[in-house]
Amino acid sequence: MGVSIEIIGVWVAALMTLAIFSFLYADNPVYKLAEHLFVGISAGYGVVITWHEAVIPLLIDPLFRPENVDLAEPNYLVIIPGLLGLMMFSRFIPRYDWLSRWPIAFVMGLYSGLAIPASVQTYLLPQLHATMLPIWPGVEVDAWTALSNFLLVVGVLCTLAYFYFSREHAGAFGVASKIGIFFLMVAFGASFGNTVMARVSLLIGRVQFLYDDWWLPLVAAPISRWFGG
């Protein structure tokens, strides 16, 4: 079997995975090497990808090679965001670092303008609307749905009560806030369960890679051939 760049890639990925897993036994130099390689390569990879996927097609091509981006003539408007981007690098020159505040201000202003109305329209009003549900069984909803809706409404109100701090949590209000804690605990439990599932999935992905892409074809098969299997 010839050694291709893909095979080398699989070997490197497998050995790096095992090096990272070695931390589970104890901290060691092999783990440190893999960690530092990961940080360095990730940063380098990010720079290269950004250059090829963002800087070239969005700045250099529209200015100097418009035919590459289906433009009849250069688009000089991209000079403005290009300059704003370059101003970010003024952070490296203390005398002119104030220049970097302009692009930051631009981005903050833009995102605030986008996010504030969107937050109200997306995250507040529709969610409020979604809690205004029929809680009495009848023509609109059956008994099970009504109970589900009732729990949802009680959960929202009691959780809000828990986060209302302008009044002492005593009496009926205290009971509501304690029920709110119960609902919060249920939410945290669901969140924790999903997190466990996600983390185990990542381990499964790595083990599948190690077994199917590395061990079987690149370790077990050559050994088997070596012994005439």
Binding site: Q127, A130, A190, S191, T195, A198, S201
Partner: peptide, 11 residues
């Protein structure tokens, strides 16, 4: 989505 995000997106 990843399972970590699920409880945030169910609403």
């Amino acid at each position: 989505i990843t399972a970590v995000m699920a409880t945030d997106l169910y609403p």
